[in-house]
Amino acid sequence: MTTGEATLDARALNLELYRSMLAIRRFEEAAYRAYESGEVVGTIHASIGQEAVAVGVISSMRPQDLVFSHHRGHGHALAKGVKPEQMFGELLARAYGASGGKGGSMHITDVSVRFMGSYAVVGGPIPLAVGVALAAQRRREDSVTVVFFGDGAINQGVLYESLNLASIWRLPIVFVCENNGFAISVPTSYATGGAGVTARASAFGLRAEQVDGQSVSAVRAAAAELIEGARSEGRPALLEALTYRFVGHSRGDPAHGLYRTKEELDQWRERDPLIVHREEAGLDSDTCDAIDSETTQSIDDAFDIARAYPRVPQDMLMRDVWGDA
């Protein structure tokens, strides 16, 4: 999937959206297998079930627009155009990886496609996105910055400081909250007072909307309006996408049984974004199957490409700390 305004016809666009979501799904499944086999170390946070948010928002952006992401950021990176082989390279600690093997799953950056990094302190990248939007405004750039964060970030104070700055300076920025209902194990409903993040954003003077995060078309429509409003009218906005992760928070917790019920998971699985999109866009199963086998193959190929590269060399240890070093 490339970013940018789609000039494709509706069917081609819908197929592309499907392919893009499927690539994220297959990437994360492969990453999980590599984690299980011990080739990927540390931890990974999969966004399986949430792909429509990443694809819906980012497919509404232009190439010059910028994205900030978080620890559950594989989908955002892929949707923005980071190559899957370089993402696998990062997970496998290859110098070829997107961040040279020094960032890992939680810190993937590719400035060449204006993917400005994924960050692992919850809420931490939000003011960075505000700063990029400020710089874009001052430099009279025609760019919008989007920052993704989860519901876990909506009780961090820095989010509200950032919403306020965006509001008083009328910055070209869209805050996207991926509300998957849980911050690891703590339900959003328990953790959040009042009427939720959209009401809070409205109180700061932002446009704020809530959308079905399982429908890529719905996300895309809502995001496109907010992004273009931010671009042409200098109206910062917040989009809350209601979604669900079909897997545990990371590799340390099960998809259900600890803090979520199987019934709840099954209900959300019926609204798998791939299924929802097939139905909404009327995609036939033969076409979808063909896309699936192509996508699966290309993801598998990407993994093999990455694995063939050498590990990050030891002389990179002290590189890029400060100054000439």
Partner: peptide, 23 residues
């Protein structure tokens, strides 16, 4: 002039620095 928002001000400065300004 910024509001009294030290965390966001610092983050904003960092973001602006990343994108071509020198705050």
């Amino acid at each position: 002039d910024t509001p009294i928002s030290e965390a966001a001000t610092m983050g904003c400065g960092i973001g602006a620095a990343v994108h071509g300004l020198r705050p």
